[in-house]
Design a protein around this nucleic acid. Structure first.
Length: 459
DNA sequence: ATAGGGTTAG
């Protein structure tokens, strides 16, 4: 039975936590994570304060990471352990907790962690502020993020070029490029902006498809005596391709070659992917086949790019051939390789082979992640095979990979499509489970963005 | 955790 149905019966008591579902050879932190999810406050203290468990910073961090999509429980775990008689949290665990609080937009808790960190003299450090600013920006508060950056020194962590570049990057990655550029103009002198600062901003303009501004910035850096690096050129190249300026991209690449710029594997990966996504498969292949002759070996990412575009714009069989080829050459596929191919197989209607590949992943010691599961669940739902989707969901729930908002969204909406009464019952239970796990705020936010819920609906 | 290349999808 999957977890929602189990939830319907009385919860197992703590002395026999695994009575209903004995853990199948799960890593310790995964077993712990599911145990935490199932337990109430009292039980939690009992487990965590058990003198037989030896806590380390590493095991705490792994557990927090597992509970990433279950914020309230994760913080409850962190706080309970914070009252442990002998164990004290490390700075990286505080950073994790701060990240989670920020994701939940619980700024009160976030700043309480910062003060506690400081009073225990384990921070806050540059990484802490990278996290905090990123969370504010993600919550749509870029001005707040800038203020936090400007007040870092008041928390005992002085700003430097690194932290300056970090805040620029955080703003750019969230597409607040104009804001980043304004901050940059004010402080580039004080922090001695370097090539990295310029690259971050150039990449920002490229992300919002404003390649002319990126090019302008390139001129600006040269004017100020900073030499563009290969990274700079790769950013521009990617920018042209992202903006659909394929011809310009190719000309830019030829210029790079002509100017004796050392072309690297990232340049080639960018090209293979870029030409592939616009459907120029032959060109993508030609670039891929030609790179070795230029003295550059493909990486796993290059293979991933080729496999992905073959799945999307050619046919999945050819992608499988390339996959087998890379394996026979001794490359070790990573989780992205598998995910791309699993999705390709699903898309081609080969659900059985997709599931087989997922099994092969496990045999190859590459654990499927939430994306892998979500893809398969989504395609099963699309095909109306809700029972099979639930079957896969059940496998996740056992703890090795916890569901996220997408997982719930896909499953629940699929059940509303079919409208069988028993489905609706399960959908309701899933919804309760979601709310239980702290997804409610997130749902409301995403729904109100789409205008699907009236504003007065409150949870 | 200072920058560039691969992950779902309407």
């Amino acid at each position: 039975m999957y977890s929602v149905l189990r939830r319907a019966s009385p919860k197992p008591s703590f002395s026999i936590p695994w009575n209903h579902s004995p853990p199948p050879q799960l890593p310790q932190d995964a077993a712990l994570a599911s145990l935490i999810l199932e337990s109430d406050r009292e039980g939690l203290t009992r487990i965590l304060h058990d003198p037989n468990i030896h806590w380390t910073s590493d095991s705490v961090n792994k557990t927090l990471k597992r509970l990433w999509n279950h914020g309230p429980k994760a913080l409850q775990f962190f706080n309970t352990l914070d009252r442990h008689p002998t164990y004290t949290h490390s700075s990286s665990s505080y950073d994790h907790a701060i990240d989670i609080a920020g994701r939940l937009r619980d700024y009160k808790a976030l700043w309480a962690f910062v003060s506690r960190m400081r009073s225990r003299r384990v921070g806050p450090g540059p990484r802490t502020f990278a996290i905090i600013t990123e969370r504010y920006v993600a919550a749509g508060k870029p001005d707040r993020a800038v203020k936090v950056f400007l007040s870092m020194h008041e928390h005992g962590c002085p700003q430097d070029l690194n932290s300056f570049n970090t805040i620029l990057d955080v703003l750019c990655k969230a597409k607040r490029v104009e804001k980043a550029y304004n901050l940059f103009k004010v402080f580039r002198g004080r922090f001695r902006a370097d090539c990295v600062s310029y690259n971050i901003l150039a990449n920002g303009w490229c992300l919002i498809k404003r390649t002319p501004r990126a090019l302008e910035l390139l001129g600006e850096m040269v004017e100020r005596g900073i030499d563009p690096s290969l990274t700079t050129y790769n950013i521009l190249l990617k920018g042209y391709l992202r903006a659909g300026q394929v011809k310009e991209a190719w000309e830019f690449f030829l210029q790079m070659k002509k100017r004796k710029c050392e072309i690297d594997v990232i340049t080639y990966t960018t090209l293979v992917h870029g030409f592939g996504v616009v459907g120029e498969i032959k060109k993508a292949r030609k670039i891929f086949d030609g790179m070795v002759g230029e003295g550059v070996l493909p990486s796993v990412a290059t293979y991933n790019a080729l496999i992905q575009v073959l799945c999307k714009k050619d046919c999945v069989e050819n992608a499988v051939v390339v996959f087998e080829e890379m394996v026979s050459k001794g490359y070790v596929p990573n989780v992205t390789t598998y995910n791309v191919l699993v999705r390709g197989l699903c898309h081609a209607g080969n659900m059985d082979r997709a599931m087989e590949l997922m099994e092969r992943m496990k045999d190859d010691e590459c654990e499927p992640n939430v994306q892998t599961y979500n893809v398969v669940i989504r395609y099963f739902c699309d095909a109306g095979e809700i029972d099979k989707a639930l079957n896969v969901f059940e496998k996740m729930g056992r703890g090795d990979c916890l569901p996220n908002l997408d997982t719930y969204n896909v499953l629940i909406s699929a059940m509303f499509v079919r409208k069988k009464p028993e489905d609706l019952l399960v959908a309701g239970k899933l919804l309760i489970e979601m709310v239980d796990r702290g997804f409610a705020k997130e749902i409301l936010r995403s729904q109100s963005r789409c205008g699907r819920l009236p504003r007065q609906v409150k949870l």
